[in-house]
Amino acid sequence: ENVVSAPMPGKVLRVLVRVGDRVRVGQGLLVLEAMKMENEIPSPRDGVVKRILVKEGEIVDTGQPKIELG
């Protein structure tokens, strides 16, 4: 899985990584606000952040790609 998608609709509060960052499985990639709760979205695997496809403040839909890992 190279693309991390939104598990639920919500607002991107914070992006916790930058392009080029090495990430580990379970590491937080971003914080999504859904139903007035903050949810940290974890990396599904070890890898390197290739692209960030969302911006802080953006509203995302379920299944929308957010971060691409290499």
Results as ranks from 00 to 15, higher is better:
Arg22Asp: 09
Asp46Tyr: 08
Val12Arg: 01
Pro7Thr: 13
Met8Trp: 15
Glu58His: 06
Val19Trp: 04
Gln64Val: 08
Gly47Arg: 02
Val3Glu: 06
Thr62Val: 13
Leu69Asn: 01
Pro65Asn: 07
Gly47Cys: 05
Ile52Phe: 03
Val15Arg: 01
Gly70Met: 14
Val3Asn: 06
Pro7Glu: 10
Ile59Thr: 11
Gly63Lys: 07
Val60Arg: 02
Asn2Cys: 15
Glu1Tyr: 14
Glu58Gln: 13
Ser43Cys: 10
Thr62Arg: 14
Leu69Val: 08
Val49Met: 00
Met37Leu: 11
Glu68Gln: 09
Arg18His: 10
Arg51Phe: 07
Gly26Ala: 05
Pro7His: 11
Val54Gln: 01
Asn2Trp: 15
Gln64Arg: 07
Pro9Phe: 10
Val3Met: 14
Val31Asn: 00
Ile67Val: 10
Lys66Thr: 15
Arg45Val: 14
Arg18Tyr: 06
Met37His: 10
Leu16Pro: 00
Pro44Glu: 05
Gln64Gly: 05
Gly10His: 03
Gln27Ile: 06
Met37Ser: 10
Gly10Pro: 03
Asn39Ala: 12
Lys55Gln: 11
Arg14Ala: 07
Ile41Arg: 01
Asp21Arg: 04
Leu13His: 03
Ile59Gly: 05
Glu1Ala: 13
Val31Asp: 00
Ile41Leu: 07
Leu69Glu: 03
Met35Phe: 14
Asp21Tyr: 06
Ser5His: 12
Leu13Gly: 01
Glu33Ala: 10
Ile41Gly: 02
Val49Gly: 01
Gln64Asp: 10
Pro42Asp: 05
Pro44Gly: 04
Gly47Glu: 02
Leu32Tyr: 09
Ile67Phe: 08
Asp46Arg: 08
Arg45Asn: 07
Gly20Phe: 06
Glu68Tyr: 13
Val60Met: 04
Leu32Glu: 00
Glu68Arg: 06
Gly63Pro: 03
Ile41Trp: 05
Val19Lys: 06
Pro44His: 09
Asp21Ala: 07
Gly20Ile: 04
Pro42Lys: 14
Val49Tyr: 00
Glu56His: 06
Pro42Val: 14
Leu30Tyr: 07
Gly26Cys: 09
Glu56Ala: 12
Val49His: 00
Arg45Gly: 06
Gly63Asp: 08
Glu56Asn: 07
Val25Ile: 12
Arg22Gln: 11
Leu53Thr: 03
Gln27Tyr: 04
Gly28Arg: 08
Val23Gly: 01
Leu30Gly: 00
Val15Met: 08
Val4Leu: 08
Pro7Gln: 12
Glu40Gly: 04
Glu68Leu: 15
Gly57Thr: 03
Ile59Tyr: 15
Asp46Phe: 08
Asp61Thr: 15
Gly20Ala: 05
Ala34Glu: 04
Gly20Asn: 07
Arg51Ala: 12
Val48His: 08
Gly70Thr: 13
Val17Tyr: 00
Asn2Leu: 14
Pro42Gln: 13
Val49Ile: 12
Glu38Cys: 11
Ile67Thr: 02
Gly10Gln: 06
Arg14Tyr: 06
Pro7Lys: 13
Ile41Met: 05
Val54Met: 02
Val54Ser: 01
Gly63Leu: 07
Lys66Ser: 15
Gly70Arg: 13
Arg14Pro: 00
Lys50His: 10
Val48Trp: 15
Ile59Val: 11
Asn2Met: 14
Gly47Ile: 03
Val17Thr: 03
Glu38Arg: 11
Gly10Lys: 02
Ile41Thr: 03
Leu30His: 00
Pro9Arg: 14
Leu16Arg: 04
Pro44Asn: 05
Ala34His: 14
Val4Ala: 04
Ile67Lys: 01
Gly70Phe: 15
Met37Cys: 11
Leu32Val: 09
Leu53Asp: 03
Asp21Val: 08
Leu13Ile: 12
Lys11Asn: 02
Gly57Cys: 08
Pro9Gly: 12
Lys66Met: 15
Ser43Leu: 03
Val49Asn: 01
Asn2Lys: 09
Leu32Lys: 00
Val49Leu: 01
Leu16Lys: 04
Leu30Asp: 00
Pro65Gln: 07
Lys66Ile: 15
Pro44Val: 05
Glu40Arg: 09
Asn2Gln: 11
Arg18Asn: 11
Glu68Met: 13
Gly20Asp: 04
Glu33Leu: 15
Leu30Lys: 00
Gln27Gly: 03
Arg24Glu: 09
Leu53Ser: 03
Pro42Ala: 12
Leu69Thr: 02
Val12Ile: 13
Lys55Asn: 09
Gly10Tyr: 04
Leu16Gly: 00
Gly63Glu: 06
Gly63His: 09
Val48Leu: 09
Asp61Gly: 12
Val48Lys: 05
Glu38Ala: 11
Pro9His: 11
Leu29Ser: 01
Glu1Met: 13
Glu58Ser: 09
Ile41Phe: 05
Met35Lys: 10
Ile67Glu: 02
Gly26Val: 04
Arg51Trp: 06
Pro42Trp: 09
Leu30Glu: 00
Asn39Glu: 10
Pro65His: 09
Met8Gln: 08
Gly63Ser: 07
Ile52Val: 10
Pro65Arg: 07
Arg18Gly: 08
Met37Gly: 12
Met35Pro: 03
Val17Leu: 02
Pro65Asp: 07
Lys50Ile: 15
Arg18Gln: 11
Val23Pro: 00
Leu13Thr: 08
Ile59Arg: 10
Leu13Cys: 08
Gly20Glu: 03
Ala34Lys: 05
Glu68Gly: 04
Arg51Asn: 09
Asn2Glu: 11
Glu68Cys: 14
Ala6Leu: 06
Lys50Tyr: 11
Lys66Asp: 07
Leu30Cys: 06
Leu13Tyr: 03
Val54His: 02
Glu33Thr: 07
Glu56Lys: 09
Glu1Trp: 14
Val17Lys: 01
Lys55Glu: 10
Ile41Ala: 02
Lys66Ala: 15
Lys11Glu: 02
Leu30Trp: 05
Met37Arg: 13
Thr62Glu: 12
Val19Asn: 04
Asp61Met: 14
Leu13Asn: 03
Asn2Thr: 15
Ser5Thr: 13
Glu38Gly: 05
Val25Phe: 12
Pro44Asp: 06
Val19Arg: 06
Glu38Leu: 12
Lys66Gln: 15
Asp46Cys: 10
Asn2Ser: 13
Lys66Gly: 15
Asp21Trp: 09
Gly20His: 07
Asp61Val: 15
Ser43Asn: 02
Ile67Cys: 06
Val15Ile: 15
Met35Thr: 07
Val3Ser: 07
Gly70Trp: 15
Arg24Val: 13
Ser5Asn: 10
Asp61Cys: 14
Gly47Ser: 05
Leu13Phe: 02
Ile67Pro: 02
Arg51Asp: 05
Val25Ala: 13
Arg51Gly: 06
Lys55Gly: 08
Val4Asp: 03
Pro65Ala: 12
Thr62Ser: 13
Val54Arg: 03
Ser5Pro: 07
Lys11Phe: 07
Gly26Asn: 07
Lys36Arg: 12
Leu53Ile: 06
Lys55Cys: 10
Val3Phe: 15
Val60Lys: 01
Glu56Tyr: 06
Glu40Asp: 06
Asn39Ile: 15
Glu38His: 11
Val12Lys: 01
Gly47Asp: 01
Pro65Gly: 10
Arg45Ala: 11
Lys66Pro: 07
Pro9Met: 10
Ala6Phe: 08
Ile67Tyr: 03
Arg45Asp: 04
Met35Trp: 11
Leu32Asn: 00
Glu38Lys: 10
Val12Tyr: 00
Arg45Tyr: 14
Val31Ala: 02
Asp21Glu: 13
Ile67Gln: 02
Lys11Thr: 09
Asp21Gln: 14
Leu53Met: 13
Gly63Cys: 09
Lys36Gln: 14
Thr62Pro: 11
Gly28Asp: 03
Pro42Ser: 11
Gln27Arg: 04
Thr62Trp: 11
Val19Gly: 01
Val48Cys: 12
Leu53Glu: 02
Asp61Pro: 06
Glu40Gln: 10
Val17Asp: 00
Val48Ser: 05
Ala34Thr: 13
